[in-house]
Every structure is written in structure tokens, then in C-alpha cells.
């Protein structure tokens, strides 16, 4: 009974985070196919306040903000997922090899990771993005993914290191299993929860960085995303004009998405590291 109570209290964060995220996910992916409106169509006047025709008003081009918001959320989550997957893949690979192999492999990989941790990722993002004139969703995700892996590599390396001297891994070595087999069957399963946690954080990083790049004028070029909505709101000084409906919806959407992901991550962290729960 006691155990059950504890697990229930634990999962609250994870549960709330997951619910918020999936509600946003479902709405933004289920609505677009049925939408009668095109998010890029300039229907109304510039910065029309919310009305029955435009529930969240119009933006600087006279486009319907609500439609943009739903399509933009879909774009942002898509970019977050692809970028997050790429970053997690690179980070996990580097982290596992560095942490598990140790020695010189570790020295080299760890030095590279530390170098890329110190160089602000946004600067590399800028240098790459400036060089690519047309940025589709896929290219955008790719650029974001290959610049944000170092955090994951660092976290996974630390976990992989702690596994190195475990009994079952020594057994596998004695049994003559290959490096690939040991990593696939003995190391990765034990890192699964950390990899999932890293992935959750990487998705939110991808979404945040997409918006940051868009606001610099280096966002995806052929679509509407939460970032491009903020970009236009900023360029046309919606805040100074008082057109709050142009920047609050996308800003709030990004905040809710990242908050839900942080919450889920923190809940998982508490399951894996009981000390954080503050009981012990």
C-alpha cells in the first residue's frame, strides 16, 4: 500500500506534463486536415482585434491568428521531434561510446563534447543558417539537431560510465560478446530511462531554438511556425501597438509545450533518483 501511494504521488508531475503535452499534440495534428482556412491566406485587415470571425484576431498580414496558431504548433512540434531525435541519436552514440569504452576513446570524445558545450550553439546555428538561403522544415530540424547534442552526450556519458564495472557487463565480456552486442543488450537497456529524459529535453530545446532562430530572421522560410509568428509580431512591433493577440498566443503555446515537457522530465527524474523527492 505504501509503495502504491508513493508511486502515485511521484507520477503526478509526469502525468500532468504528459496530459498537457498530448492535448496540445492532438489538437495541432488532428485539426489541420479538416481546416477550411489556410494559415497563410491574408483574409482581413492588419491587426484586427479578436471577433467572432477571427477568434484570436489577425496578424500584421491580416491572417487569422487561431488558424496560424494551430498550424504553427504542428510545425514547431514536428521540428522539435525531428531535431530532438537527431540530437538524441548523436548525443547518445557519443555518450555511450565515451562512457563505456573509456580510455583514449573517452578522452577524445569528451574533449570534443566539452568544446561544443562551451561554444554557444546559437552562434554555430547562425553561421550555418546564414549560409542556407532556403530553409524547409526538414533542413531547419537538421540544423537544430546537429548543434544541440553535447548536453545529451555529457549526461549519457556519466550514466554509461557508472555501468562499466557492473557484474552483468563483465559476464558478457567473458562470454565473448562483441562490443556492439554488449552495447545493444547490456548497456542501452539500462540507459533507456535517461535516454527518454534526454529526448524530452531535446524536443523542447528544438522548439525553443526554432523560435529563437526565427526571431533572428533565420527560421523556416516556407511555412508558419510558432517562431515565425513571433518573428512577424516583433518586426511589426505588435507589442508597441498593443496588438497582444499577435504575440501572446504563440508565446503562451511555446511556454505550455516546454513547461509540460519539463514537468514530465522532472517527474521521470524523481522516479529514477528518489533523493530529489526530498523524503530521504
Amino acid at each position: 500500500m505504501n509503495l502504491k501511494k508513493r508511486a502515485g504521488a511521484l507520477n503526478k508531475k509526469l502525468l500532468i506534463g504528459a496530459i498537457i503535452f498530448f492535448v496540445i499534440l492532438i489538437v495541432s495534428f488532428a485539426y489541420p486536415p479538416f481546416s477550411k482556412r489556410d494559415p497563410l491566406e491574408m483574409e482581413g485587415m492588419m491587426f484586427e482585434p479578436p471577433s467572432s470571425l477571427y477568434p484570436l484576431g489577425t496578424d500584421n498580414f491580416g491572417r487569422d491568428v487561431l488558424t496560424e496558431l494551430i498550424f504553427g504548433t504542428k510545425t514547431s512540434i514536428t521540428i522539435g521531434f525531428i531535431a530532438g531525435s537527431i540530437a538524441t541519436l548523436i548525443g547518445t552514440t557519443i555518450g555511450v561510446f565515451a562512457g563505456y569504452c573509456g580510455g583514449n576513446t573517452d578522452n577524445i570524445l569528451n574533449t570534443i563534447t566539452n568544446i561544443f558545450l562551451v561554444i554557444p550553439p546559437i552562434l554555430i546555428l547562425i553561421v550555418i543558417s546564414v549560409s542556407i538561403q532556403s530553409r524547409s522544415i526538414l533542413i531547419m530540424s537538421l540544423i537544430l539537431g546537429i548543434t544541440s547534442w553535447p548536453w545529451t552526450a555529457r549526461a549519457i556519458r556519466a550514466q554509461a560510465q557508472s555501468l562499466r564495472n557492473r557484474e552483468h557487463i563483465k559476464m558478457a565480456k567473458l562470454n565473448g560478446e562483441s562490443l556492439a552486442e554488449i552495447i545493444a543488450f547490456e548497456v542501452l537497456p539500462y540507459l533507456a530511462s535517461y535516454i527518454v529524459m534526454a529526448f524530452i529535453l531535446q524536443v523542447s530545446t528544438g522548439i525553443l531554438n526554432e523560435a529563437a532562430m526565427s526571431m533572428l530572421g533565420l527560421g523556416p522560410t516556407d511555412t508558419v511556425s510558432l517562431g515565425t509568428m513571433l518573428e512577424w509580431a516583433l518586426l511589426f512591433e505588435s507589442a508597441r501597438i498593443g496588438a497582444w493577440w499577435a504575440f501572446i498566443p504563440p508565446g503562451l503555446a511555446i511556454t505550455m509545450i516546454t513547461f509540460s515537457l519539463y514537468l514530465a522530465n522532472s517527474g521521470m527524474d524523481e522516479i529514477v533518483n528518489p533523493r530529489l523527492r526530498g523524503v530521504v
Partner: peptide, 20 residues
């Protein structure tokens, strides 16, 4: 957690709008 989930630019725009 909520404040750190709110991106700096969203916070900045909100502050600009509310206080400015």
C-alpha cells in the same frame, strides 16, 4: 519551473507589453 519554461523572448515581449 514555469518561469524557466517561459522562453526569455516571450518573457521579454510580455514585460515590454505590460510595463512598457
Amino acid at each position: 519551473l514555469l518561469v524557466s519554461a517561459m522562453p526569455y523572448y516571450v518573457l521579454a515581449i510580455l514585460m515590454q507589453y505590460i510595463f512598457g
